[in-house]
Design a protein around this nucleic acid. Structure first.
Lengths: 211, 211
DNA sequence: ATGCATTGGGGAGTGGCACTATCCAATCAT
DNA sequence: ATGATTGGATAGTGCCACTCCCCAATGCAT
């Protein structure tokens, strides 16, 4: 299919597709002549993935390129690629000041992971993100203890096991890689909106009393 | 305290504080003379809240102003204010095209809420966000059934109950309002990083086999 | 063949956002 | 008295995700 058809089938304007091609988010089509290129179903799928990452996942274009590059890097084994791709996903920036809240937050994160039986991986960007978020909570003076956090860790543990099993069900390594990234990113808003809805539900329930 | 001290104690530059004052994120200090203004502890607390919303929660400044305005609006009762404030928090934009995936996503969201025993609130922005996220998943061709989603809903339900109870423990209405916003926003990155860490844990565990 | 529309490529421009640099007059500290 | 500081205001910066526009080559209809 041509650029115009790719655009129509994906709902993305040709200008934006060209931008993605330029930025390396989309592999170039197969050149038919000097002014024509042919795109296949895999381009359409990749384009939809890009859109999902950028629009739903709010991932910067430059970051999305890194993630996709890691997916496509066939020099390494699959688990390394998944790890690289997910690690490239955006995380909150670490705090510029290392004050006492950061130290407390680090201790808290470590203790939490110990209590959950997780291996402590300090080089995982998610660990940095966790410390940053905990430090912000502490800086605002909110109570933040291991007991408070354990339910979150337990919930995350259950969901992650569910997801890893789901990813394992995909047939080919390529679809597994794509699924790992897509499910990680696209289930985030699902989880967050469900939490908001549940909060509203719990709040009204409390308001109306235990009637 | 003066602007300079407020800046030093919060770690935010005076230029940025002035910007927040201009944008109405921070109430003006008490004017001492034509060129001096006095700021109190409540300014410091509010400033830290603003920073947490903007930096950790990645909330646009204009949105943060709406949230804070809702908190400060003393014309309405507390639950309305909490609802308004949380509803003003940013949500993924609804899809521009209403294709069949959106219809399926809406049915799925409705069924999920029914199964969880939640009142269905279509006007809640979080509901729209959920539909958008589900539609993106469906458009990519990922399996997305009520059974798949139920664990997420159940997890959200448990966490929300925990949070609402926690908010209820705060003494004054004002601190409850602040806590509702702060906990909603600041626990999002906590939950998401824990999920990423749990995924890494589950993936390595699966890799190393059931040994 | 001919003429007009279309295609893909590329550079420059746009609009939004979160600051940030600079200036200024009034005031404070010594 | 005088140099530094303060708060207020305006304009500018850098980044980002597109988006506009032009071009030459090509496809297609006549």
């Amino acid at each position: 299919m041509r650029l115009a058809e790719l655009s129509e089938r994906s709902g993305v304007t040709t200008a934006t597709i060209k931008y993605y091609l330029r930025e390396g988010l989309l592999p170039p089509g197969e050149r038919i002549s000097a002014t024509q290129a042919e795109y296949g179903e895999e381009h359409l799928r990749r384009l939809r993935l890009v859109r999902a990452l950028v629009q739903v996942g709010r991932i910067p274009v430059a970051t999305a390129r890194e993630v996709l590059t890691a997916i496509d890097d066939d020099r390494t084994d699959q688990l390394t690629r998944i790890g690289t791709a997910v690690a490239a996903l955006p995380q909150p920036a670490p705090p510029r000041r290392r004050d006492e809240t950061v130290v407390t937050a680090e201790a808290l994160a470590g203790e939490l992971q110990r209590r959950l039986g997780w291996r402590i991986v300090v080089d995982n960007p998610a660990h940095q993100a966790l410390v940053t978020a905990l430090a912000a909570l502490l800086r605002l003076g909110y109570p933040c203890t291991v007991e408070q956090l354990l339910p979150y860790g337990a919930a995350a543990d259950g969901l992650a096991a569910h997801e890893i099993a789901l990813i394992g069900e995909f047939a080919s390594p390529t679809t597994q890689l794509e699924a790992a990234v897509a499910l990680t990113v696209l289930y985030e808003p699902v989880l967050l909106s469900l939490r908001r809805l549940a909060q509203a539900e719990a709040a009204t329930r409390q308001l109306r009393g235990p009637s």
